[in-house]
Design a protein around this nucleic acid. Structure first.
Lengths: 216, 216
DNA sequence: TAAGTATTTGAATCACGATTCAACAAATAT
DNA sequence: ATATTTGTTGAATCGTGATTCAAATACTTA
């Protein structure tokens, strides 16, 4: 899906990716669409779980907020997790299931932010300038949008710039300076989230070597 | 593209939509991709022009800002202009041309907002809490994101709610109350932006009547 | 080990969509 | 009025990808 779009996936590609033949894939998923939906669902779930895990250990609301913001953005234009979500965004207008999936994710993310905001406010660390849900919604919205910008390879908006922009808003909304920890030099070359798959067994020796960037 | 996704368009559908046969379409666009790019380009252009036109007559910066925000959002989940842009968002990760197209649009919209903000500030109407570009970027980002939410049919976020949320941010950023004009009861049933096309000439009498909502 | 079940293969088939092209029609120029 | 070009058609062709299925293989259980 990342390579050819939600509507452009071909059974054979899926099979090859899985190290199987088309028949085997059909054996498990007589209807391809079910597989795609499950895949999207799993991708979303993984994305969300990762975020939750990243902030689970942090106590300070400000640091928690900053980390959460960063974890919602792609690591770069090739971040597969976010790429998938962007793909979903386009398809959501056409397909109710995808729409619901995406909507659910959005709501969960809002709840996550809202929790952080509320706790911070309760501790007196944040001074919210409005309803916590309203702020949370805007935070998630900003994340989403900058995700798209990064995926589209905007020349002047990368992950760092996006974090900066979102923090600008977060500061207004929380009344907290939200200093980015200069520590934690985010691990550079953790690119390609793609789990290395055990290639097809023999026979399919001729991989047409699809370029890293498919020109549609 | 709206019906079947950027990767799912079929020549015959395009031809039928245009009231032609596949051959005739190929005569003008030997490479289908050129057509799609031009279509996206035209769609974007139209979207932008419409926004500019809508605010052209307004003098008051606050009203201008409010109107601009509204004009950046879809009128509903079926707004074809925005649907197309969402489609583009997913494809941008795969296709450099689309990425550039989208990036360009984003930058132009930022410039548009920036202008409004700067003028408002110069007139003493707005008191910007930060860099005008930074605020403008976030405004466009919010628009984009809520566009996606609306297209995905979020149960509690429609055009009105989105405007409200964006205005919440805009108020923080401009220090202006930004009261929505209760006047101008937005025209209810202006659905289906789709321009009525002169149907195919004879022969192609059997239109399979594709439902309004294609289940992917 | 043997029987039974689950999975995978590879080839055959089927359907559909892109592409080509000769003939036709319309518009425009001479 | 005729020639030329421009655009369009419809049918034929071609290629690709989904789908089916009998046979082969792997795994499980008794």
């Amino acid at each position: 899906m990342i390579q050819h779009g939600a509507e452009g996936v071909h059974l054979n590609q899926i099979a090859e990716e899985a190290g199987l033949t088309s028949g085997a894939v059909l054996y498990h998923y007589p209807d391809l669409r079910d597989l795609l939906i499950e895949a999207h669902h799993a991708g979303m779930e993984r994305f969300y779980e990762q975020r939750v895990k990243k902030i689970s250990g942090i106590a300070d609301p400000a640091q928690k907020l900053i980390t959460t913001i960063r974890s919602g953005l792609p690591e770069g234009p090739d971040d597969s997790g976010v790429r998938l979500l962007c793909e979903l965004g386009g398809a959501a207008g056409r397909n109710r299931v995808y729409g619901t999936l995406l909507t659910t994710l959005y709501d969960r993310q809002v709840a996550m932010y809202q929790m952080i905001l509320e706790i911070g406010a309760a501790q007196g660390v944040f001074t919210l300038t409005g309803d916590s849900e309203q702020i949370a919604r805007n935070l998630v919205a900003l994340e989403d949008a900058y995700g798209y910008r990064i995926i589209a390879r905007h020349h002047s908006i990368g992950p760092d710039e996006a974090v900066g922009l979102i923090l600008d808003f977060a500061r207004m909304a929380t009344g907290h300076p939200l200093k980015e920890t200069p520590a934690a030099p985010r691990p550079k070359a953790t690119r390609s989230t793609r789990t290395t798959r055990p290639r097809a067994n023999g026979k399919t020796a001729d991989t047409p070597a699809a370029g890293p960037q498919d020109a549609d």
